[in-house]
Computed example of a mutant assay.
Amino acid sequence: MIGNERHSLPGVIGGDLIRHGKIPVLVFIAVLVSALMVVTTAHKTRLLTAQREQLVLERDALDIEWRNLILEENALGDHSRVERIATEKIQMQHVDPSQENIVVHN
């Protein structure tokens, strides 16, 4: 005799999965988790790559500034060296341009 019971399709599918399909359900969940982790890792990698590029640009700008400061230091160092040699070896003195009296040594 055939019963007139009504079963809902989602209930039948769920019951079959619980009874006979535990491994496929676990594999499906594992695939979903793995896919989400891949997407998250790719996103973080892109963010870190962009941050690294920004840091490289900043490093390059600082390197250029450092080179310019070294050049400036060398230029100023050369001037002070010339001034020191002039005062020590040939006894030159600074002249104040605002002074009206000029002293001439014979």
Score class of each variant (00 low, 15 high):
residue 1 M to F: 09
residue 1 M to C: 07
residue 3 G to S: 14
residue 3 G to T: 04
residue 7 H to V: 02
residue 7 H to A: 01
residue 8 S to V: 03
residue 8 S to R: 11
residue 10 P to W: 02
residue 11 G to C: 03
residue 12 V to Q: 00
residue 12 V to H: 00
residue 13 I to G: 01
residue 14 G to L: 05
residue 14 G to M: 05
residue 15 G to I: 00
residue 15 G to Q: 07
residue 16 D to G: 02
residue 17 L to Q: 05
residue 18 I to W: 10
residue 18 I to R: 04
residue 20 H to Q: 12
residue 24 P to W: 00
residue 24 P to A: 09
residue 25 V to G: 01
residue 26 L to V: 03
residue 26 L to Q: 05
residue 27 V to R: 10
residue 30 A to H: 05
residue 30 A to W: 01
residue 31 V to S: 09
residue 31 V to L: 04
residue 31 V to W: 01
residue 33 V to Y: 05
residue 35 A to P: 01
residue 36 L to Q: 12
residue 38 V to W: 06
residue 40 T to H: 10
residue 41 T to P: 01
residue 42 A to H: 03
residue 43 H to E: 13
residue 45 T to G: 11
residue 48 L to K: 07
residue 49 T to M: 08
residue 50 A to D: 12
residue 50 A to Y: 04
residue 51 Q to L: 11
residue 54 Q to T: 12
residue 55 L to W: 11
residue 56 V to E: 13
residue 57 L to C: 05
residue 57 L to K: 13
residue 58 E to C: 02
residue 59 R to Y: 12
residue 59 R to D: 03
residue 60 D to W: 06
residue 64 I to V: 05
residue 66 W to D: 13
residue 67 R to Q: 09
residue 68 N to P: 01
residue 68 N to Q: 10
residue 69 L to P: 00
residue 70 I to A: 07
residue 71 L to S: 11
residue 76 L to R: 13
residue 76 L to C: 04
residue 76 L to Q: 08
residue 76 L to I: 07
residue 77 G to S: 11
residue 77 G to I: 07
residue 78 D to V: 06
residue 78 D to F: 11
residue 79 H to E: 15
residue 80 S to Y: 14
residue 81 R to P: 00
residue 81 R to Q: 14
residue 81 R to A: 15
residue 84 R to D: 15
residue 86 A to G: 07
residue 87 T to G: 06
residue 88 E to M: 12
residue 90 I to T: 03
residue 92 M to W: 15
residue 93 Q to W: 10
residue 93 Q to T: 08
residue 94 H to T: 13
residue 95 V to G: 09
residue 95 V to T: 13
residue 97 P to T: 04
residue 98 S to A: 12
residue 98 S to C: 02
residue 98 S to H: 15
residue 101 N to Y: 09
residue 101 N to L: 14
residue 101 N to T: 14
residue 101 N to H: 05
residue 102 I to G: 05
residue 106 N to C: 10
residue 106 N to A: 15
residue 106 N to D: 15
